Simulated scan of single mutants.
Amino acid sequence: MPAKVKGLVERLKDGEDIIVAEGYLFEFERRGYLRAGCFVPEVVLEHPELVKVMHEEFVHAGSDVVEAFTYYAHREKLRVIGREDDLELINRKALKLAREVADETNTLMAGNISNTTIYRPDDKDAEEKTRLIFKEQIEWAVEEGADYIIGETYRDNGEAMLALECIKKYGKGLPAVITLAPTATDVSNDGIPLEEVARNLEDAGAACVGINCHNGPDTMSSLIRKGPIACLPTPYRTTNEMKSMVNLKDPVTGENAFPGELDPWLCTRRRIDEFTKELKEIGVQYLGLCCGNRAHFTRAMAEALGRKPPASRYSPDMSQHFSTMTDNQHEYSAAKFYSNK
């Protein structure tokens, strides 16, 4: 039997920091196992061994949570690519992989539901379809042993509230973390200030509320100070002029960089370190990175909090590089190399 792991709610109450590595969609797209556009995690069925390895990489780098890769593995997205028959299979497989790694590493396992892309305010038919999407994914997460459920990337107060309602109704008492995803303003798509949305979610019983995705560290700071305590930005250098990663322009062509030309806009590890310390000063406890995240960024967050995850064994140490060594330390030191040029 795996060791009992301290729960999410208990950690939050005890003032502990919780690092949550997200970003699976972009990372598998970058590696050639997922198509940009539909962004459906078919890799879960086609290469489950790679999904497990990525879970392990993120934990190795410092993540406290293994998040099941069920983002966009819902009914509507699978319909777009003609794989509706794989709906339950892909969800259960993703959940089992996450549970397996969480048990092996004594970390928490989170189920995941996401924005549905079909929700519309004041559209009862869309609301019922959204409710069904949430219901079935939540029930599978419960059956496969999730420790809590993440509802993420909501741009409408209504969809975020519906996600929480469904977790409370179908989640068998599992805690809910709900994160909003504003693009360029501090108001939801249905016209409600983010601070009010966060308060609505807290009052309705969410264990943790915050912001994820779209904004990079430089444009998320002003939003997170308005109240939410979870913060998972993209690691891109968004600006006041281009507040969201979807607004960033390719520096060569001037065309939209999203999604395939975003690399020039990536933050440095130093910026992730600085931002993590900024979050700590604000009092954010639940933190991580979303689309664009890679294991070395997660390690940077962990080290900024004073941790030494297993990956820290391999953190850069340029004192061991030949260019910084003296003749006594290294037979072929930089000084000798350049003096012979």
Rank of each mutant, 00 (worst) to 15 (best):
L279S: 04
P259Y: 10
Y286N: 02
E196W: 12
T268Y: 01
N256T: 14
T253Q: 03
R271T: 10
V209C: 09
D273V: 13
T183I: 15
P228K: 01
E278G: 04
G283Q: 01
A181F: 09
N293P: 08
I192W: 06
T219L: 02
K280V: 11
V246D: 10
Y286A: 01
T298F: 02
N200C: 13
T276E: 07
K249W: 08
E278N: 00
L174M: 12
H214Q: 14
R299I: 05
A176V: 10
G254V: 07
K249H: 02
Y236C: 05
V284P: 01
A295P: 08
S188E: 10
R270L: 09
T179P: 05
G288I: 00
C267T: 08
V252N: 03
I224A: 08
H296V: 09
R225V: 15
L287E: 07
T238D: 00
L194I: 14
G173H: 02
Y286M: 09
A204H: 05
W265R: 05
T183D: 13
P228D: 03
G171C: 13
C290E: 01
R237T: 11
F275C: 01
D273L: 14
I282P: 07
R237F: 11
A295H: 02
G173R: 00
T298S: 00
C290R: 00
G173C: 09
R199W: 12
K226W: 05
Y170N: 09
C213R: 01
M245D: 04
L262K: 03
L266V: 07
I282K: 00
E195A: 15
L174Q: 06
